[in-house]
């Protein structure tokens, strides 16, 4: 009895297998098609660009590497730095922020203009350090601003970006506004700027120019 059952099962399996094989062969025949492909012989190369901004002292200048000492009201000390857009992408949004720590009266104005000011100007050629002049057209990039206002990035007003390889030659002026403080027997008034000191870190930043779509 069991042998008969086994035989029937095998028969059904064999029939099913044959049926499925026939179906599979038939289906391939139905969907068979022709394919064609075109491939470029030379691989197309796509490189990503780079954005790089570097800063070095201007010609003949110490840059920000030397201390500015013993400022009196009205004193102006100019430092010179060159910014180079050394990447392969043009830039935009040139800006400066300054992190200042130290004597508060030198950083933030009180009721009068007391705090140190920073002014940034640019020159198309190297600055003449003997008298701080530019033989080309001087552009004011950042008008005199107290240190506290430069804690947030301040955009350059005229040179908004740099082309690839372009150099921005900057004169950075640090000035102590002229102000009157009278000492009595060697003691300065409350909130004095005298004898104060600040540590400054200058950060120049640029962003990539707008993305471009090209058609060739």
């Amino acid at each position: 009895m069991d042998r008969i059952k086994m035989k029937n099962t095998l028969r059904i399996g064999a029939v099913a297998l044959i049926g499925l094989s026939a179906l599979s062969i038939g289906a391939n025949g139905v969907y068979a098609t022709l394919n064609a492909k075109a491939t470029n012989v030379t691989p197309q190369v796509a490189d990503s660009g780079t954005l790089s901004l570097t800063m070095i002292p201007g010609t003949g200048s110490a840059g920000f590497g030397t201390k500015i000492d013993n400022l009196a009201p009205g004193d102006v000390s100019n430092r010179y730095v060159d910014l180079t857009n050394g990447g392969t992408l043009a830039s935009t949004g040139l800006s400066l922020d300054v992190v200042a720590t130290g004597t508060p009266s030198l950083i933030t104005d009180g009721s009068t203009s007391k705090a140190l000011r920073v002014t940034v100007k640019s020159c198309p050629v190297a600055w003449d350090l003997t008298n701080g002049t530019c033989t080309g057209t001087t552009k004011t990039e950042i008008a005199a601003a107290p240190l506290s206002s430069l804690s947030a990035a301040r955009a350059f007003t005229t040179t908004t970006g740099l082309t690839v390889g372009a150099i921005s030659r900057l004169q950075v002026s640090i000035s102590l506004p002229d102000q009157s403080e009278t000492t009595l027997n060697g003691v300065a008034p409350v909130g004095t700027v005298q004898g104060g000191s600040v540590s400054l870190t200058y950060s120049f930043t640029e962003a990539q120019a707008s993305p471009a779509t090209t058609n060739r």
Binding site: G87, T103, I174, T183, N185
Partner: peptide, 20 residues
């Protein structure tokens, strides 16, 4: 957007004092 920055070392600026 890609950004690049150039940062200076810390620069010290000090005011003088006057009194007698």
């Amino acid at each position: 957007q890609t950004r690049a920055a150039a940062r200076s070392a810390v620069a010290v600026t000090a005011a003088g004092s006057w009194g007698a």
